[in-house]
Write a protein that binds this DNA or RNA. Structure first.
Lengths: 148, 148
DNA sequence: ATGTCTGCAAAAACTTTGCATTATG
DNA sequence: CATAATGCAAAGTTTTTGCAGACAT
């Protein structure tokens, strides 16, 4: 079973919560995706398996997961309204957004660790988490642009 | 005169726009601030000089500035609703948010350049801009926490 | 003067909440 | 069976828009 499901189950146990079908479906959908869905995306996807599911339930589940620190969200510049949800804030990875096709690529970099410690050293702050977003053109779109 | 005002004036000239008192006031307020205000913040601040100013005008000006690429916005994790606006996407600087007192600190790092070029080298993408957000406790809050 | 911009009010977009009902543990 | 969670509808919060009048150029 996936990390997220296990962690959610644990959290529920701890606080006397219940693993409902809706929650399980939302969690499974979230785990299976490699995109970063919005609440609406998730609603539309889960609705295919359970047409009776409600948007409120999706929002409530996402909020709970955020509060439990089991997921994160990002508000990409280009997308004024929607928040995009994403698993595993603990496994450090960062995001590149292609401003032409809106594809999100993930990447990793050991340099971010160094940025954190450098900031800590300079300011005396304690850095608990970090996010990096890059924006630009992906290889594909760059090629298409060149061909024109 | 500040960069932003000059750039805005230029953009207006280019597109037959007009430098109204409201726009000038909003721009000046934005320039004078070292915080990263929300639309509402900006509305309240500008209202002190011109009580007749309207929230719509603030939003319209901010949207125009975003579209002209003269400002950026960030949606900090902790603040679900508000977007925070910020000058000069070109002068690279990044943000630390203290999750206790909500202070925003800016910092600079040459390492971000290296993250960009490394990503470009690995993927063939072209990175046009980047953002880094750090979250944690500032020195002050860290101290207060320790004293308890 | 001409056409852009504003204020106002209404609507749109996104998210949360109250309550009766369902269903998990 | 106790009570947490859901669906539904209504409300809340932030942002955008239509329109008539105001104001830069």
């Amino acid at each position: 079973m996936s990390d997220l499901l296990l962690q959610a189950q644990e959290a529920l146990q701890r606080q006397g919560g219940r693993m409902t079908n809706q929650r399980r479906l939302i969690l499974e959908t979230l785990v299976d995706l490699d995109i970063h869905p919005t609440a609406e995306d998730l609603y539309n996807l889960t609705r295919q398996s359970d047409p009776s599911i409600n948007l409120s339930t999706v929002y409530r589940t996402l909020r709970w997961l955020l509060d439990e620190n089991l997921i994160q969200f990002h508000a990409f510049e280009e997308d004024r309204y929607h928040k995009h949800f994403d698993l595993n804030p603990n496994e450090e990875h960062y995001h590149f957004l292609c401003t032409s096709c809106n594809t999100v690529l993930e990447f990793d970099s050991q340099l971010v660790e160094r940025i954190k410690t450098s900031f800590e050293d300079h300011t005396g702050a304690e850095v608990l988490s970090g996010d990096v977003f890059l924006y630009g053109l992906c290889a594909q779109c760059r090629k298409e642009e060149a061909d024109r």
